[in-house]
Design a protein around this nucleic acid. Structure first.
Length: 431
RNA sequence: UCCGGCGUAGCUCAGUCGGCAGAGCAGGUGGCUGUUAACCACCGUGUCGCAGGUUCGAGUCCUGCCGCCGGAGCCA
């Protein structure tokens, strides 16, 4: 394969004649000149076709190119102050690989419903391209963080025989005549992994059949879930803030220009430094009261409460020790006050809501059985999970971080639907 | 499930008091040697979401339904 020249690194080919392969992003003409904006997936560069420089049929063909036509362009890389890149291509040859049909996404405005119907094409637009590039960096940062900190990747299954938490709605499927559900969390399985490997994480898609219609919800989303044996709630909070600040720092280092292109307030992101403020649920209720929001102790926070709490701090805030009644059965109760659980949520600033939820797990066999019963769950499917408390049970903790909400927060997007290549939502299964 | 909003050309939208359905973009043809969502001239485009109703006459008013968007609940 010939050495490939990317637009992203075109500066290193200054003065040379190169061949670029890509698609026509836009075109402007001026008599004996055609200005072709060429997109190759790494960037966009202007290619200038002058009538005197190329064969007549090539000049003619360039004038008839439609948006997103596939072309291979050969020409000299030259400096030009008028170019945003600082470089442009003086075209000497042009090969039309495919003359595109009229392209639906024009250089004018479109509504989100139309764009989502054409998501497979919308991915080519510069803004979507930037967002998904940052998502790619965030996903890599998650893996790098755990891989370099002694964690082993133990992925959880997607098909599960029962509800992990029993609280949210699951997608049911037919598994050779048996009921199976798409996982809503790898939680229970990474606990088994932690007892085998010490420090583990899983990273995969999760599914929630909730009829949520908000900017923060997808029915299919990605979650990274670390789980550590011999770790308590404090250790869990330390891990979460270290992990989140690592991701943000990585994005700031590699994507400053991209964040600015997205009109993200970079200074607000730069404040994401450890330590994060930590307040208990009870303190949060008091804080809400101070801010004029009356919230009864014992009820979980809604989106509005989370927004008020998050707005009180300049970086992510950790809220811990929620009432046990509004948390999952596997959360360990606080030995000092059984009304609250050893759990924590991380709320992102600027109204992005909960990006992390986790805590210390119940490690006592009888306590756990009692909680399963309290939550009206059938004990039998959890027998393997109870085994973890029969054979060398130890304190352990972990959490789940939602990738799409994290991407939305870091990129400063209004809606999570633009943070994933092909979003699955209440009213969206295609493309 | 509940509350609110919107459905008119391929797309984004306008359409006044109920009186011939219209702009920009995209597409086509032509023009221009430096364009930056280029520009200029000309050309084509309709189940006005669907079904009823009122009226001489409905895109416009009324009723029902459908679809989508935003929010709530629930959650990451």
């Amino acid at each position: 394969m010939l050495e490939r020249v990317d637009i992203r690194t075109i500066a290193s080919s200054y003065g040379e004649t190169v061949t670029l392969q890509g698609w026509l992003y836009n075109k402007r003409s001026s008599g004996k000149l055609h200005f072709l904006q060429l997109r190759d997936g790494t960037g966009v560069i202007q290619c200038v076709v002058f009538k005197g420089d190329v064969e007549e049929d090539v000049f003619e063909a360039a004038g008839h190119l439609t948006q997103e036509s596939a072309i291979r362009v050969t020409g000299e890389v030259r400096k030009d102050e008028r170019s945003p890149l600082g470089f442009e291509i003086g075209v000497s040859a042009l090969e039309v690989m495919h003359q595109a049909e009229p392209y639906p996404i024009t250089p004018k405005e479109h509504g989100t419903a139309f764009l989502m119907d054409h998501r497979h094409l919308w991915l080519r637009s510069s803004r979507q391209h930037t967002i998904l590039t940052i998502r790619s960096t965030i996903v890599a940062a998650c893996r790098d963080y755990y891989d370099t900190n002694g964690f082993t990747l133990i992925d959880a299954p997607i098909f599960t025989p029962n509800a992990c938490e029993g609280t949210t709605t699951l997608f049911a499927t037919d598994y050779f005549g048996e009921d199976a559900y798409l996982t809503q969390s790898g939680q229970l399985y990474v606990e088994a992994g932690a007892m085998a490997f010490g420090k583990v994480y899983c990273f995969g898609p999760t599914f929630r059949a909730e009829k949520s219609k908000t900017r923060r919800h997808l029915t299919e989303f990605w979650m990274v879930e670390p789980e550590v044996a011999y770790m308590d709630l404090d250790g869990d909070m330390d891990l979460a803030e270290d992990f989140i600040s690592f991701i943000v720092e990585r994005v700031l280092n590699r994507h400053r220009a991209d964040l600015e292109a997205l009109e993200r307030d970079v200074e607000a992101l730069e404040r994401t430094q450890k330590p994060f403020p930590r307040i208990s649920y009870t303190e949060a209720v008091d804080l809400l009261k101070e801010k004029g929001v009356d919230h009864p102790w014992g009820e979980d926070f809604g989106g509005d409460e989370e927004t008020v709490l998050a707005a009180s701090f300049d970086r992510p805030v950790i809220v811990h020790h929620y009432p046990a009644a509004c948390k999952a059965f596997y959360m360990k109760a606080d030995p000092a006050d059984s009304r609250v659980a050893l759990c924590m949520d991380v709320l992102a600033p600027e109204g992005y809501g909960e990006i992390v939820g986790g805590g210390q797990r119940e490690d006592d066999l009888e306590e756990l059985r009692r909680k399963i019963a309290e939550h009206d769950l059938d004990e039998e499917p959890f027998n393997w999970y109870l085994d973890l408390r029969r054979y060398g049970s130890v304190p352990h903790a972990g959490f789940g971080l939602g990738i799409e909400r994290t991407v939305a927060w870091i990129c400063g997007l209004r809606h999570v639907r633009e943070t994933i290549p092909f979003p699955r939502m209440l009213q969206r299964l295609t493309p």
